[in-house]
C-alpha cells in the first residue's frame, strides 16, 4: 500500500463576479498516492484548472487544506511555497507557456536557475545543461536545443514544457489539458510520454475534459458540482 503524496480536504473556492458569486469548489476531498497517474475529468468550467492550481500552490482555496507529504501547505511561508513550486511540483499547461526570449535549452533549465543565486548557478550550470539536454534528447528534441519556442510545432513545444516541468525532479507532475491544443496523433504521443514517465515512477495528475484521453490514466476521477464523484 503506497503512501499518499497529495491530500485535499474540504476545499472551497468561489469567484465573485460583480453581485453574483460562482462557487467552483464545494468541499472537495481528494487523495493521490505516490506513483499514481490520475486523470481528473470534468466539463468545461467545472473547476479543474482551479483545483490543479490550488494543488500546486499557485492559487489558494477560500477554505480547506492541501497536504503534501502530510504537510499542510497553509502553514507554509511564501518563501517555502516558492521552493515548493520550484522543487516538488512541475506544471504543464495547455498552451505550453514557454518563455519566448529563451531558447529551448534555457527554457528547460529555467527552474534550476530560479532556485540558485548567480554564484550557485555558475557552479551548477554544466550539470543543469546536461540534465536539460538529456531530458530533451529523451523526448526526441536533441537537435532543437538552440531553437526558439516559436520555431517549434505544438507537440514539440509541449515536450519542451514537460522537460521543464521535470527539470528539478518534482514529486508530482501537474498537467492542465496538456493535449487540449494538439491534434489527436500528437496528443497521443504526449500521452505516451506521460505513461512512460509514470511507469518509471512519476506521480502525475492530469486534467482533461476528454474521456478518451482520461482512459490512458491509471485512475479517472470526475469533478462535478465542485466535488469528486468516483
Amino acid at each position: 500500500m503506497s503512501k499518499s503524496i497529495i491530500k485535499a480536504a474540504g476545499l472551497f473556492k468561489s469567484y465573485k463576479m460583480g453581485a453574483t458569486s460562482v462557487d467552483v469548489l464545494r468541499g472537495l476531498e481528494l487523495t493521490i498516492k505516490k506513483g499514481e497517474f490520475v486523470a481528473i475529468i470534468g466539463s468545461s468550467g467545472s473547476g479543474k484548472s482551479t483545483l490543479l492550481h490550488i494543488l500546486g500552490s499557485l492559487d489558494r482555496p477560500d477554505s480547506g487544506d492541501v497536504f503534501f507529504d502530510d504537510e499542510n501547505l497553509n502553514g507554509f511561508s511564501s518563501r517555502r511555497l516558492n521552493k515548493f513550486r520550484n522543487k516538488e511540483v512541475g506544471f504543464v499547461f495547455q498552451f505550453y507557456h514557454l518563455l519566448d526570449e529563451l531558447d529551448v535549452l534555457e527554457n528547460v533549465y529555467l527552474p534550476s536557475m530560479v532556485s540558485r543565486s548567480i554564484i550557485g548557478w555558475f557552479g551548477f550550470k554544466t550539470q543543469a545543461r546536461q540534465r536539460a539536454a538529456g531530458l530533451l534528447e529523451r523526448f526526441g528534441l536533441a537537435d532543437r536545443l538552440t531553437h526558439k519556442p516559436y520555431q517549434l510545432s505544438g507537440g514539440e513545444r509541449q515536450r519542451v514544457a514537460i522537460a521543464r516541468a521535470l527539470m528539478n525532479e518534482p514529486q508530482v507532475l501537474l498537467a492542465d489539458e496538456p493535449t487540449g491544443n494538439l491534434d489527436w496523433q500528437t496528443g497521443n504521443d504526449i500521452l505516451n510520454v506521460f505513461t512512460e514517465l509514470n511507469k518509471a515512477g512519476q506521480t502525475i495528475i492530469m486534467v482533461t475534459h476528454d474521456q478518451r484521453i482520461a482512459q490512458k490514466a491509471g485512475r479517472v476521477i470526475t469533478l462535478v458540482d465542485g466535488r469528486i464523484t468516483d
Binding site: 511564501s78 513550486r85 518563455l99 529555467l110 527552474p111
Partner: peptide, 12 residues
C-alpha cells in the same frame, strides 16, 4: 504571461 510562468516554476 511570463510573470505567471516564472511564478509557476518558483520565482518569488
Amino acid at each position: 504571461r511570463d510573470i505567471g510562468i516564472l511564478k509557476s516554476v518558483g520565482a518569488s
